[in-house]
């Protein structure tokens, strides 16, 4: 066990535990706060993977915007769900079974793949991943077209969200 492996296991257990609390917590505000801690664990995983830009974007976009949006939505739709019976629907056992089967299926599928025990190549010491990512996102030889399509999608979705949620009196 090296230090990196212990770090990874601690982060993974923390993330999975908070993720489990997200889907089982009875109070939705608590579920949204557990989501913040899950997202933070995923950000640490990106940092362990040397994807520094993704780690920062995860904190800024997911924790800073999406999780706060969830907390606002919970507060805007707040009729205390705890008073209206169970949080799970009556087929929750079927969902649990399907989730366990999905995990088992993925696990067995991955067991049979020979790239599983692969270890990472040594990270080049003079390699600037952030500027390389910027080049890849903006150069015509790279991914400028998917990047622009994603930005158009985001604008369309936000305009649609404002239109749908607008309160016409």
């Amino acid at each position: 066990m090296t230090g990196e492996q212990i770090t990874f296991l601690a982060v993974a257990l923390f993330t999975l535990g908070s993720g489990f609390m997200v889907v089982t917590s009875g109070n939705l505000v608590h579920a949204a706060l557990w989501l913040v801690s899950t997202l933070f664990g995923v950000a640490v995983t990106y940092a362990v993977l040397d994807a520094s830009f993704l780690a920062v974007v995860q904190v800024v976009v997911y924790i800073g915007a999406i999780a706060i949006l969830f907390i606002f939505a919970v507060m805007l739709t707040r009729k205390d769900m705890r008073d209206q019976g169970p949080q799970m629907n009556k087929n929750w056992w079927f969902g649990a079974l399907l989730a366990v089967l999905t995990f088992a299926g993925l696990f067995f599928l991955l067991q049979g793949w020979d790239g599983m025990s692969r270890t990472a190549a040594v990270y080049p010491s003079n390699f600037d991943a952030v500027s390389e990512l910027g080049n890849a996102l903006t150069s015509p030889a790279g991914y400028v077209l998917p990047f622009e399509v994603a930005s158009v999608l985001l604008v369309a979705a936000l305009v649609g969200a404002v239109y749908v949620a607008f309160n016409r009196k």
């Binding site: 993720g19 969830f70 949080q87 629907n89 087929n91 079927f94 649990a96 399907l98 366990v100 696990f107």
Partner: peptide, 19 residues
């Protein structure tokens, strides 16, 4: 895969649309 399965369980069994 474990995180995906936890999310799948949440999608299939929660009653609240925000959840």
């Amino acid at each position: 895969a474990a995180l995906f399965s936890i999310g799948l369980f949440g999608v299939l069994s929660r009653r609240n649309a925000v959840a």
